[in-house]
Amino acid sequence: MEDLIIEGSHKNYFIPSVNFNSKTGICELSGESFLEDTVEFYKPLISWLEQYIDGVKNPIAFIIKLTYFNTSTSRCILDLLNILKDYEDENGEVVVNWHYDENDSDMEEDIEDYIIDTGLDINLIPF
């Protein structure tokens, strides 16, 4: 299975950096997310995770380092986390580490809301 790598950018729209590694199971999503077509952008991320879970079946370490995302992105993040939660419920090994600016209390609340919403144990890691 191939890795999924997308280089982020900060132009008219903000494209997050994606680095999903099929050998290590380390999947990182970082930068800022404000896209022209959010659903279209996150589709390959969702199908990559589904393929990995169906085929590779190894542990996943999901690392989020987003400093900004808009509300339509927040729906897609929920979709990704729900897939991870389903994997965990089927005895898959899942760790989610969410790095955030310690001065950003709004982001901290956002992560707490995802914990409530998905039932995943998301590790909050301030920097």
């Binding site: 077509d37 959010t38 659903v39 808009n70 509300t71 339509s72 927040s74 729906r75 897609c76 929920l78 919403d117």
Partner: peptide, 15 residues
């Protein structure tokens, strides 16, 4: 609201 289907371009509702 986030658990309901999205509006146009994946937005709406929660903005």
């Amino acid at each position: 609201l986030r658990n309901l289907p999205p509006g146009i371009k994946g937005g709406g509702n929660i903005g």
